[in-house]
Design a protein around this nucleic acid. Structure first.
Length: 401
RNA sequence: GGGUCGGUGGCAGAGUGGUCAAUUGCACCAGACUGUAAAUCUGGCGGCCUUGCGCCUACGAAGGUUCGAAUCCUUCCCGGCCCA
């Protein structure tokens, strides 16, 4: 009846962090979830990932770190690769190209996904599943029966569809199929819970309904926060250009973090790192007391690079950043370009990839964006010689050989 | 199946015969500013060069009318809405 008292304060604290850090909302409620997590029973919670081939980025960190905390607390995380659903495309991600992925592509993607996930958690402690396991065998009649458990009204209630109805934008019938399939995953896996971004809430709740219908049991739904710019309200995404991928090189990663708006510092610390919450509170306090957010952002950038590339690389990236941007010196490693053919400035810019076309190169030159050996060059027919160092914009350098 | 409205640059969305390579916003690039940013301001944002008020390619696709078409006509493809 009551919570099993065999749990220490330490363990309870862990559960509290599991239920709050990076978490937007828990269904049916945090209290209910806590009761179950502390009941002594090992529960199984899954995360669904569609191996569409995109890189895994720090927006995924929240859910992955959740899984890590889950096994640290003695429960069982499952990662479900949506190798079958990847072929449909989740309408939640409206940019998702609807290209048909071949089985071979999906297999390759999955391999790189595991590789990237292992940077956050120990994949040996995770149950690995694929939804092709059950969908490849499912008959049409079974599927239709499944579909009949949801109503069109329920589907249309989804905010995304509401919006599209309002804007008179098309809604594909297949877009109704996706939540149904994702929902059935819960039944097939026979899980106790699911974790996903808050944009997945609808899909996750469909699974909750299905589990009630099929197995007469409750499913916990953990909807995590999304990393979004608190000012513009925009979700971080690849098109915004500032998305940090697990595979980013150290310097690139460091620079991207430094270009985040200050307002995101706390949220990223909370959602994408394992820095203790106590320390994050101190940072919050520090910033409120007027300390320079830049210093905390440097710390954040270093921490993220450390997570994916190790202590040494993090230190190097930080030094590099301070050298190039704070002291405006040349970066340590500059790409080389071997002169060939025309040696006019414009031609060299195009050939070396500093500009996409001659028109663009000329524009940049006209804007004073191009410097050779430290001084701005405005003549586009200026001759380039081996040994020259060219700079375009703030961060693109190239050394001529 | 019928009716009707529409398909424009990365996106959103103007433009309805010439001055349209196409208003504007977002995104993007550069410059200024700065504490790295953000915000702001300024400029740019199809390509090519002999840099001209030049040439080529572009407004769903293919044809046609016209001195001239994103704009008009025909057919086709795709979509929204309404009716069945």
């Amino acid at each position: 009846m009551l919570v099993n008292m065999a749990f220490t304060d330490e363990e309870e604290k862990k559960i509290d962090e599991l239920l709050s850090r990076g978490i937007e909302r828990v269904y049916p409620s945090k209290e209910e979830a806590k009761k179950i997590l502390l009941s002594g029973k090992k529960i199984r919670v899954y995360l669904g990932i569609d191996p569409t081939g995109k890189e895994i980025h720090i927006g995924h960190s929240v859910v992955l770190l959740f899984l890590k905390r889950l096994y640290e607390a003695g429960h069982i995380p499952i990662v479900l690769m949506g190798d079958f659903t990847a072929r449909i495309g989740d309408p939640t991600d409206k940019d998702a190209a609807r290209k048909q992925l071949t089985a071979e592509q999906v297999r390759k993607n999955m391999a790189t996904y595991w590789d990237q996930i292992s940077k956050i958690l120990d994949t040996d402690k995770v149950e690995k599943r694929h939804n092709a396991e059950w969908y490849e065998k499912m008959d049409l009649d079974n599927f239709i029966r499944l579909a009949s458990e949801e109503t069109v009204q329920q589907m249309l209630a989804r905010d995304m569809f509401q919006k599209r109805m309002k804007n008179k934008k098309p809604i594909g019938v297949h877009e109704f199929l996706y939540p149904i399939m994702q929902g059935y995953d819960s039944v097939a896996l026979d899980v106790d819970g699911e974790v996903g971004g808050k944009d997945q809430t609808f899909n996750m709740l469909v699974g909750r309904d299905f589990l009630k219908n099929h197995k007469k049991r409750e499913k916990l739904v953990f909807a995590t926060k999304l990393l979004e710019d608190p000012v513009s309200g925009k979700k971080m995404s690849k098109t915004e250009g500032n998305l940090v991928s697990f595979n980013d090189l150290p310097n690139e990663m460091f620079g991207k973090v430094m270009s985040f708006p200050d307002e995101m510092i706390l949220a990223i610390f909370e959602c994408a790192t394992e820095v203790p919450m106590e320390h994050i509170q101190e940072i919050k306090k520090g910033m409120n007391e007027g300390e320079n957010p830049k210093d905390y952002k440097l710390e954040l950038a270093a921490e993220l690079v450390r997570m994916y590339h190790g202590e040494k690389e993090a230190k190097k990236a930080r030094e590099e950043f301070e050298r190039v941007f704070s002291q405006k010196k040349l970066p340590e490693d500059i790409g080389e370009y071997k002169l060939k053919g025309n040696t006019d400035l414009v031609d060299v810019m195009v050939d070396s990839g500093l500009a996409k076309s001659k028109s663009e190169a000329k524009r940049l030159i006209g804007q004073g964006a191009v410097a050779i050996n430290g001084s701005v060059e405005k003549k586009w027919d200026r001759e380039i010689n081996p040994g020259d160092v060219m700079k375009v914009g703030v961060r693109r350098y190239i050394r001529i050989s």
